[in-house]
Design a protein around this nucleic acid. Structure first.
Length: 893
RNA sequence: GGGCGUUUAGCUCAGUGGUAGAGCGCUUCGUUUACACCGAAGAUGUCGGGAGUUCGACCCUCUCAACGCCCACCA
């Protein structure tokens, strides 16, 4: 017997290890089944599960399970990422707490610490994925710093260097003064801030009375000025071009140059040029061969290129000091309050400094051209489609990708330098040495951007650069599911690398899902303290409920607001299913071997069997189109709304002898009734089993448990290996569906009337049908037990001619409901109800008539629409007539 | 500044060129042997404003507004 409630905690803990042990998560490279490959976006190895993962992983697991059931050889490749900066930061913080710095330990010891931390916390995220019920091929779990993946990184680096797509260059980078490292454009976050625009007068050489005014938001950088630029068309300054100005405080001479970059409309029209500390100025400087004076050190403190009393000052302290000095010199012409965007490090949170250094760059622009082609030709398709355009726009403005980081945790750059600074790129030190005979070489201390190694994920995890049969079979992947927030960081870079090294796109489709926000629509973040922990929800409502919430919320193109109410609602759904199964068990309604759903005779059974097919089709169709919300809605609606609310209720009278015994008029022999009951039991069991299969990808735990205990309680197989139902079209029986629709309508109407008339719940009423057609009579007979049970009727009587005077009627097709218990009825209320209904119908008729009276409509509307309007009108009129009769009779009473 | 998205029932959100939908919440009723984490019935909307295309617009076009996100070097 099933327990009273679904104990999800117990079931989850018991089921998962069994699944994993059974080995069905594993791909089957030897099989010749059609394959389904999906690469898990590797989470940070030392991280823990957040809502975004829960969404992302649930969707992947649903499709993996679905495809596995469809009989495909499914590879869901799991793994984790070393997450360079993030992980190094955590360990540095730990050291900090011990009062140490990473420099104290030295590189080797520090890396040992990081590996220790990885060993300690690295299992968290993967065990949490198991809690969620995810079924990737764990045996293949990869880590971006595994030996073979690291080999791939080196190989790629060297090859790109040889191909001229990777090079070392001295240019401005986004420098993070806190991490002492370069970061990529993508890791810079522009934050809007209040600031000032200072107008400063620079004196001209030789004519100290004349000045030229420049405007700047960063006065401290004037110590590195090497020119003033004015627009060549700017009449105000034409005469000054070629003259020299004096940088205040620094007392250095700089030329006044003409450059289009200076916008006469902006500021004073003259702009100071600081090539070493501004991206635009850098370009201007290159155009005019200006010297580049770097005035900062790696902490963004002023260095020896600044006047002596500024050296060592932090940049903002320097700003204060210089402003004070300018004021004293009375050359601070004015100060404007402005809001502007200031670049910040997305992880460090400090202001990013454009900084002149040597770094390694990937020629992303060149490499992304084939990516554009692949997307345009449809070799990789993005879902939703609008991301494709955004992608193209981004690629259009692509800058070289700075891939070196001045960190220790990561893949060390495979480049060596000799005493003269000449660089040797090679896979090993021996090879590098061979290129530099007789020289002493030292390795580049920098490591690569985390995303460099994850860009190789689709093939490095399959054994590349080795010759691995897996690579042949599973590349390119069928699908990538990830959040749109890492489309530039990761998706496109995988495409660049995949196309370059594998000669083919890494995946055929990319499904980009939205972000998970908190209940108020805010991004979840630790600093805001609004993070909802998926593990908490799993503990409270079960993994199935959380998974279903994720799936049901995943409409395309919209962020998801996470609310606990919704999870609770789907927890209730698991309970509902559990109880339905319990009901089946109580009624011996189990699936039977050899049962052929297309052979059922009873209308109810024919109908439900067709509904199962419709539902299965809807789910499959929705999943193939990545409409997870529609798929979820279909199975939810069928299970609860169709199976539980209607089918089980409809069939109860046939299964329950107590209810059936007071039905003596149905005319069926008890043998025939037994046959019906038997068919219902078998069908019910079959439907339950289909629900368990269809729902399994979404709610694996509860379905597996019920499958084991009810549906396949003797054989002990599992849904993991069960086939996705493939039904014959013959299951659809239109006539049966129409019959049941009629019965549903009758029952709903009777219920509605009962309720409106305040008939006490316990009181049974009679349905008296006047002048019924033969078809209606037949139907009434077929659904007699169901009508009595579900609409709480005492009897159904057939009358011809006028109904008894003191009765009240409501209309259900031709059926007339008569309530002989006049005392129970509030006449005024009933009159009001009828009048209201009539008024509404009359209004509907007016609208319909107006429509049909419109010549253009009649001329242009398609036939079926026109017909619909005509029948509609007739129906409305019939109902009004019947209601009017009822009202008449009411008045008579 | 550029781009994108959103605006539908009290809340969270689906949705389609042909008389508006779900879940939650709310109201009323209900201990009928699966289920109160339940069942039945019900109320609530000029589908953001305006204009246009169409026989017909919540859906297509334009425009305005509000909110959100992304991108951007304007000193």
């Amino acid at each position: 017997m099933l327990e009273k409630n679904f104990n999800f905690a117990e079931v989850e803990a018991r089921q998962y290890p069994q699944w994993e042990k059974s080995g069905v998560f594993a791909a089957q490279p030897e099989s010749n089944k059609e394959r389904f490959t999906i690469m898990m976006p590797p989470p940070n190895v030392t991280g823990s599960l957040h809502m975004g993962h829960a969404l992302n992983m649930t969707l992947q697991d649903i499709l993996t399970r679905y495809n596995r059931m469809k009989g495909k050889d499914s590879l869901w490749m799991p793994g984790t990422d070393h997450a360079g900066i993030a992980t190094q930061l955590v360990v540095e913080r730990q050291l900090d707490a011990e009062g140490k710095k990473r420099a104290d330990l030295g590189r080797e010891k520090f890396l040992e610490r990081v590996w220790e931390w990885k060993a300690y916390s690295g299992g968290t995220i993967t065990s949490q994925l198991r809690r969620l019920g995810a079924t990737p091929d764990w045996d293949r779990e990869a880590f971006t710093m595994d030996d073979n993946l690291s080999r791939a990184v080196v190989k790629v680096f060297v090859q790109l260097y040889k191909d001229g797509l990777l090079y070392r260059d001295k240019r401005l980078v986004n420098w993070d003064p806190k991490f002492h490292s370069a970061i990529s454009d993508l890791e810079v976050e522009a934050r809007e801030m209040k600031g000032h625009l200072w107008h400063i007068q620079y004196a001209l050489e030789g004519e100290e009375a004349r000045t030229i005014t420049v405007a700047t938001t960063r006065p401290e950088t004037m110590l590195g000025d090497t020119a003033i630029a004015v627009n060549p068309e700017d009449e105000r300054y034409k005469g000054l071009i070629g003259k020299m100005a004096i940088v205040p405080v620094a007392n250095r001479l700089i030329p006044i140059i003409a450059d289009e970059y200076a916008d006469p409309e902006h500021g004073s029209g003259a702009v100071k040029i600081t090539p070493a500390h501004d991206f635009n100025d850098f370009e201007v400087g290159k155009r005019h061969n200006l010297p580049m004076i770097n005035i900062f050190d790696k902490d963004a403190h002023l260095n020896e290129n600044a006047p002596e009393d500024y050296r060592g000052l932090e940049r903002f302290a320097a700003r204060k000091k210089i402003l004070k000095e300018l004021e004293e010199l009375e050359i601070l012409e004015k100060v404007e309050n402005i809001t502007h965007t200031v670049p910040h490090g997305d992880r460090s949170g400090v202001v990013i400094e454009p900084y002149l250094t040597d770094q390694w760059y990937v020629d992303a622009k060149t490499m992304s051209q084939p990516v554009v082609a692949a997307i345009k030709s449809g070799r990789t398709e993005m879902v939703p489609k609008n991301w494709e355009k955004i992608t193209f726009d981004w690629i259009d403005n692509l800058q070289p990708w700075c891939v070196s980081r001045q960190l220790w945790w990561g893949h060390q750059v495979p480049a060596w330098y000799d005493e003269d600074g000449k660089v040797y790129v090679a896979e090993t030190e021996e090879e590098a040495q061979a290129q530099a005979p007789g020289k002493t070489i030292t390795r580049d201390p920098d490591v690569l951007d985390t995303w460099f190694s994850s860009a190789l994920w689709p093939f490095s995890t399959l054994g590349w650069p080795g010759k691995n049969p897996d690579l042949e079979k599973y590349y390119p992947g069928s699908l990538l599911i990830t959040g749109f927030d890492i489309i530039f960081f990761w998706v496109l870079r995988m495409m660049m690398m995949g196309i370059h090294f594998m000669g083919d796109v890494p995946f055929k489709k990319v499904y980009l899902h939205a972000l998970v926000l908190d209940g108020k629509g805010q991004k979840m973040s630790k600093t805001k303290g609004n993070v909802i922990d998926p593990l908490t929800l799993i503990e409270k409502f079960g993994a199935d409920a959380l998974r279903f919430t994720m799936s049901a919320s995943a409409a395309q193109g919209r962020d998801i607001r996470m609310s606990e109410d919704r999870v609770e609602g789907y927890r209730n759904f698991t309970t509902k299913l559990w109880n339905a199964a319990k009901y089946c068990e109580m009624n011996d309604a189990f699936p039977k071997e050899g049962f052929d759903p297309s052979k059922v005779k009873n209308t109810l059974n024919q109908w439900i069997v067709g509904e199962v097919l419709n539902t299965a089709n809807s789910i499959a169709e929705a999943l193939e189109a990545y409409k997870f919300n529609e798929a979820s809605a279909a199975i939810y609606q069928f299970t609860w709304g169709t199976f539980c609310d209607w089918y089980l209720e409809f069939t109860k009278p046939y299964l329950n002898p107590v209810i059936r015994s007071d039905d003596e008029e149905s005319g069926d022999s008890s043998a025939a009734q037994n046959d019906i009951a038997e068919e219902i039991r078998t069908t019910t069991g079959w439907v339950l089993e289909q629900i368990l299969r269809l729902l399994n990808p979404f709610m694996p735990f509860v379905t597996e448990e019920l499958y084991g205990q009810i549906a396949r309680r003797e054989k002990g197989d599992t849904l993991l290996t069960a086939a996705w139902p493939d039904y014959p079209k013959a299951l659809i029986r239109k006539e049966a569906a129409a019959e049941i629709a009629w019965a549903q309508k009758v029952i709903s109407e009777i219920r509605s009337v009962r309720s409106d008339m305040n008939v006490p719940a316990g009181a049974k009423i009679a349905l008296v049908v006047q002048d019924a057609s033969e078809a209606t009579k037949k139907r009434l007979k077929i659904y007699d037990p169901a009508l009595k049970q579900m609409a709480r009727l005492s009897s159904i009587e057939l009358l011809s001619g006028k109904a008894p005077g003191r009765s009240i009627k409501a209309i259900v097709d031709e059926a007339t409901l008569i309530l002989p218990i006049a005392e129970l009825i509030d006449l005024d209320k009933e009159r009001e109800r009828l009048q209201k209904q009539i008024a509404k119908l009359e209004d509907d008729i007016r609208k319909t008539e107006a429509k049909l009276g419109n010549e253009q409509f009649v001329a242009n509307a398609p036939a079926e629409i026109l017909d619909e309007f005509r029948t509609r009108k007739v129906e409305f009129q019939q109902m009004i007539d019947k209601l009017a009769t009822a009202l008449e009779q009411l008045e008579a009473a």
